[in-house]
Amino acid sequence: MISVQTGDFDTGAEYAALRASGSGTGAIATFTGLVRDSGDLSGVTGLFLEHYPGMTEAVIQGLIDEASRRWDVRDARVIHRVGRLALSDQIVFVGVCSAHRGDAFAACSFIMDALKTSAPFWKKEMTSDGEHWVEQKASDRERTQAWSSD
């Protein structure tokens, strides 16, 4: 399940859906990203998120497909919000269930890392001094590249 949406999401409902994946599931790993008060700038008061409708969903599906080839993935759910977000708002959810915990952790963190460098989303930070588009971080590119050498 992939959703790009302006509204908030309920991690409890997502967890319940993953848990319903059957009696072979032994491990559920989830990640949720929240709007933090210091990003590129300090004193962040909110974010604006833009995406490329259609391509974004296709890229995320490709990441889930790749994770499913590399690890035991029984189900994966990804939600990403767009539009205006306030401090502490939920931005992104990635949840994976698997027979084994190693696979659940690896697939969940791979999808999250790869999403940050390949899914067409762009983030603008709002501060009391104005707003600016966030620059892609070298550390994010390196995290994604690290998965290639597995």
Binding site: H51, V92, K116, T117, F121, W133, E135
Partner: peptide, 23 residues
């Protein structure tokens, strides 16, 4: 995703954007 050398033709949708910063 494409590269500078990628061919484009009538009817294509070509998008330009900065490096992505979601998540």
């Amino acid at each position: 995703m494409a590269k500078p050398a990628t061919a484009v033709k009538a009817g294509d949708e070509v998008a330009f954007f900065p490096p992505v910063t979601g998540g």
